[in-house]
Design a protein around this nucleic acid. Sequence first.
DNA 1: GCCAAGTGTGGGAGCGCTCCCACACTGTAG
DNA 2: CTACAGTGTGGGAGCGCTCCCACACTTGGC
Lengths: 354, 354
Amino acid sequence: MSPTAQRPEALHQGAGGRATARPTLEEVAALAGVGRGTVSRVINGSPRVSAKAREAVQNAIAELGYVPNRAARTLVTSRTDSIALVVPEAETRLFSEPYFSDIISGVSAELAETDMQLLLILVRNQRERERLSAYLTAQRVDGVLVVSVHRDDPLPALLESLEIPSVLAGRRGDLEPLSYVHADNAGGARMAVRHLLRRGCRQVATLTGPLDMEVAQARLGGYRRALEEAGHRYDEELVGLADFTEEGGRVAMRELLERRPELDGVFCASDVMAAGAMQVLRAAGRRIPDDVAVIGFDDSIVARHTDPPMTSVRQPIEEMGRTMARLLLDEIAERGRARRQVVLATELIVRDSA
Amino acid sequence: MSPTAQRPEALHQGAGGRATARPTLEEVAALAGVGRGTVSRVINGSPRVSAKAREAVQNAIAELGYVPNRAARTLVTSRTDSIALVVPEAETRLFSEPYFSDIISGVSAELAETDMQLLLILVRNQRERERLSAYLTAQRVDGVLVVSVHRDDPLPALLESLEIPSVLAGRRGDLEPLSYVHADNAGGARMAVRHLLRRGCRQVATLTGPLDMEVAQARLGGYRRALEEAGHRYDEELVGLADFTEEGGRVAMRELLERRPELDGVFCASDVMAAGAMQVLRAAGRRIPDDVAVIGFDDSIVARHTDPPMTSVRQPIEEMGRTMARLLLDEIAERGRARRQVVLATELIVRDSA
DNA sequence: GCCAAGTGTGGGAGCGCTCCCACACTGTAG
DNA sequence: CTACAGTGTGGGAGCGCTCCCACACTTGGC
C-alpha cells in the first residue's frame, strides 16, 4: 500500500503539487528536534520557550507548511474560534439593503486580523429559532452577534441565560443588560427635525417604524424632542405609524395627508418609507421640498435616486459592525467582563428634498 | 472537588437550568444499555441496528439532550460540515445590493435542512486572498461557493487544483470547468433590446459592465444578437464601455450622447448604471421614455425609485443561491461527480422608462 | 558547599468521536 | 449434525491537539 493511498481524504496538495499528508505537531516536533509540548508553546505564543527552540520550531513549521488542526484544538480547549452573526430573515429586507452588507463588511474587517471565523445564521421561522437555541446550547460558537432586536425577541434572554458572550446591534430598551452598539437614532432624528424647522416648516409630521423596536422609538423620541425644544406642541395627529417599508410609508402618508393636509414637512424613520411618502405627496400634487420637505433615515442607495434626491440621516453602519466585533472579541477574551454600550454619531446628509 | 467544578468551560445549562456537563456518546450508551458503537450507528443512520437498540438509544438521547460534539467528529472524519461563501469585497458594492443578501438568503434556505454551516469569507485585498488559499489548503471547509468571478481571478484555478467541491455564481467563460449557476444574461439582454426595438427605437445603444466579466460579455452578446436578428447592424459607436457603477454609467452615457446624439434607446447592463444614465439624459433635456427609452438589469430596489420607474431585467437571485447550495451539497456527497452547469431564466419587468 | 526557587523541556493522558475488527448469535444449506 | 454466510454488537485504537506533571538544568543566597 503506498503511503499516499492510506487516507485519501486527508491529503492535500503540497507546495510542489505533490499530494502529501498534512503535517502534524508531532512531525514538526521531530523535524525541529524538540518535543510536542515545545511546538505547542511556540504556536500559542507562550513566553516559556528558549529563543533557540523557538527558532528551530518556526523553521520546521515553515518548511512543512504546518497549519494547526482546528478540530483537534477545539476538542481539547472547547473554544471554537468562530462567532455567529445571527440575522432574523425579515430584517435583511426590512432594513435598507446596504445595512446588512455593511454590517457584515465591518464585522469581517475587524475579524480579518484574528483567526476567528464568521458564521452566518439566518433565522426565518420558529423551527429555525429552535435550531439556533440547540446550536447555541451546544456551544458551537464562542460568541454571538445579533443584527437587530425586537422588544419581545426571546433570543437576547437566551444569550443572557447561557452566558454566551454577545453583542447586539441596537437594544431592546433603556436597560439592555447585554452589550450593544447602536447609532444615535434620537440625535439623528432630532437633527433632521431641527433642519426642517430651520428651513421654515411649521407643521412637521413623522412616519415611524414598528414601535416594538427601540430604533423606531428612539427616532420618534428625537422627533418629539426637537419639536418641544423649538416650542412646538407634540401632536399625535402628526405621527404616522408605519413599519419601515415603502408600502407602509405610502399608506401612512396618505392617512397623514388626509388628517393634516396643511403639513409642510415629514421626517421619515427610513429611506424607503420616505420614498413611498414622496410618491404619495407627488401624486397629491405637492411639490418637494417647496410644499412639503421630506427627510429620510439611513442614507441608503434609494436616497440618492429619488426625485428630488433625498436628504437623509446617515448612520455609520460599517463602523457599527467593526465595533460590534471588537466588543465581542473582548468579551470572549475576558469572560465575565462588564457589558458595554457604544453609541455612534449620526450625520445629516442634505440633498434636495429638504 | 465538586463534579461541576472540574471543567468549568465545558458546562452548559441543562433543561432544568442546572449547570451540567455536556453528555457524551459514552453516557448515552451507558443509559441505553448498549455500546458506543451502537449509539454512533444510530446517530449516523446506519441500517445495521436492531429496532430495539435504536429505540433505546433514541430515548437516551432525548433524555440527556445529547448533541454530538462536532470537533470530535471532524477530527476523525476530517469532514467539517461547513461550507464557505467567498465574496470578493468589491462585489458587495458592485452588484446591486439585493444581489448579495438574496444569494445568502437562498443558500441559507437550502442549508437549513442539513446541518451544514455557512461560513462567510470576504476577501478585500491580496493579503486576504493568500489567507484564503491557506485556509482552503488546510481543508477547513467541505466546499466553496464563489459569488462572482472575473476572467483572471486565480481563485477558481486554485479550487480546481485542490479538488475542493465548489460552485461559482457565473462563470469565467464558455469552457468553465467548475460547476456554476448563472442567470440567462444573454437571453435577458436580448429580451430587453427586442422590447426597445418593438416599441420603435431605431438607434439602440448599450452601456456595458467590465468586459473581463463574463456577465458583462453575455449581456453585450445578447444586445448584439437582438439587433442583428432584427436586421440592424451592430455599431460599436453605440456601445459605451462602463463598469456597472452609477458614476461609470454617467460618464459613458455622456460620451455616447456626444458620439451619437440621435440615439433613442439604451440598454444598460445594470440598474445603477441606468440610473446614472437617466440623470445624464434628463440633464441633456431628453424625455424618458419618449425621446430615449432606458432599460436596466437586475431589477434592484433602485429600479423602482427612479423617475420614471425603470424597466429592468430581473434575475432569480435567491433561486441562484438555492441552486448553488444544492449543487455543492451534491458534489460534497458524491466526490468527483461530474461538474454541472445550471442556467436560470431571466424576466423583463416593464415599468415606465421603456 | 548546599538548598531553594526559577526556567525550559518532554511526553503521558485525555478531549469525544468514528472506524473497524472480532465475536456472538441467528438461520439455512449440505 | 456441521458449515457457513449474514446480522447485530461491543469496544480498542487512534484522529491531532492542549494541559499539566515531572524532571533536568540553571542561578543565587547562605
